[in-house]
Simulated assay, not measured.
Amino acid sequence: MNRTTAYATTSGIAVPKQPGARSRQTCRPLGAAVVRDLRARAGRSPHGLTFGAGDLVVLTGLPGSGKSTLMRRTVRGARIDSQDTRDRWDTRLARFLPYALYRPLVRLAHYAGLRRALRAGAGVVVHDCGTQAWVRGWLAREARRRGGTLHLLLLDVTPDTALAGQRERGRGVSRYAFLRHRRATRRLLRSIERGEMPEGCGSAVLLDRDAADVLHRIDFTD
């Protein structure tokens, strides 16, 4: 299997298009931020991403872009996905109450689960909708505290693809919420493409649909 992870060097420059990936790459603590752009490779992108043992990874993108599906398929180790938390609560309450009434409890349970995972000290992959900058700040501080690095994975798909994904799963967000997510994700993507990452982020990996489809494993070193 073509097991690849992105060696995060200390060059600290954005690389919109890079040559073919090595057979194995690993993201490690950095002195400067690094961008790995795996888009537009027509499926010739890494089959695996490996990060440092104490690192934290945030997966972000538009609602419906396929983040939860990608996490379930690829993450070997701890993963914290707000969708998993919602599904558990929906099983118990959706027949009796509209989601809006118990959404605060879902959020509380999600962040409580994230806190427990972080306290365990191992690497964690965290779902992020792209609009909660304070969550990335929290994770960046935690990564520094444990001597690791915060890495960002951004799943870059078109709004139409994301909306189609919402229809396919039978669950969507409001037009207002989607536009808010779209603006936030676009700002984040443009910033990363300029090599300007969120504060505390050591590296970023940009994925399109093809790159996400061939990615089979996200894990952490022992």
Rank of each mutant, 00 (worst) to 15 (best):
N2G: 12
N2A: 15
R3C: 10
T4E: 14
Y7A: 15
A8N: 07
A8C: 08
A8R: 07
T10S: 11
T10P: 06
S11A: 15
S11V: 13
G12F: 06
V15E: 15
V15K: 15
K17Y: 11
G20E: 12
S23N: 12
T26A: 09
T26V: 13
C27R: 14
A32Q: 13
A32E: 13
V34A: 15
V34T: 15
V34M: 14
V35Y: 07
V35T: 13
R36N: 13
R41K: 04
A42P: 04
G43M: 01
G43A: 01
R44V: 14
L49G: 00
T50P: 01
F51W: 10
G52R: 06
L56N: 09
G64P: 02
S65Q: 01
M71S: 12
R72Q: 11
R73C: 00
T74D: 02
Q83T: 15
Q83L: 15
Q83M: 14
T85M: 13
T85Q: 10
R86E: 04
D87W: 06
D87F: 08
W89R: 09
L93G: 08
R95M: 12
F96K: 11
L97C: 04
L97I: 04
Y102N: 01
P104Q: 01
L105Q: 04
R107A: 14
R107I: 13
L108K: 15
R116K: 14
A120N: 03
A120Y: 02
G121R: 07
V126Q: 02
V126E: 02
H127E: 13
T131E: 05
T131A: 08
T131S: 09
Q132A: 06
W134Q: 12
W134K: 12
G137Y: 04
G137T: 04
G137Q: 06
L139I: 05
R141Q: 07
A143C: 01
R144G: 01
G147M: 03
G148S: 01
T149A: 15
L150E: 11
D156G: 04
P159W: 00
D160P: 00
A162Y: 03
L163W: 06
L163V: 10
L163D: 04
R167F: 06
R167D: 10
E168Q: 09
R169C: 08
R171Y: 06
R175Q: 12
F178P: 03
R180P: 01
R182G: 09
T185K: 08
T185A: 12
R187E: 13
S191N: 09
S191L: 07
G195T: 06
E196V: 05
M197F: 06
M197G: 05
P198S: 01
C201K: 09
A204L: 14
V205H: 07
L206G: 09
L206Y: 08
L207W: 02
D208K: 00
A212Q: 09
D213I: 11
V214Q: 05
L215F: 04
R217K: 08
F220I: 00
T221P: 06
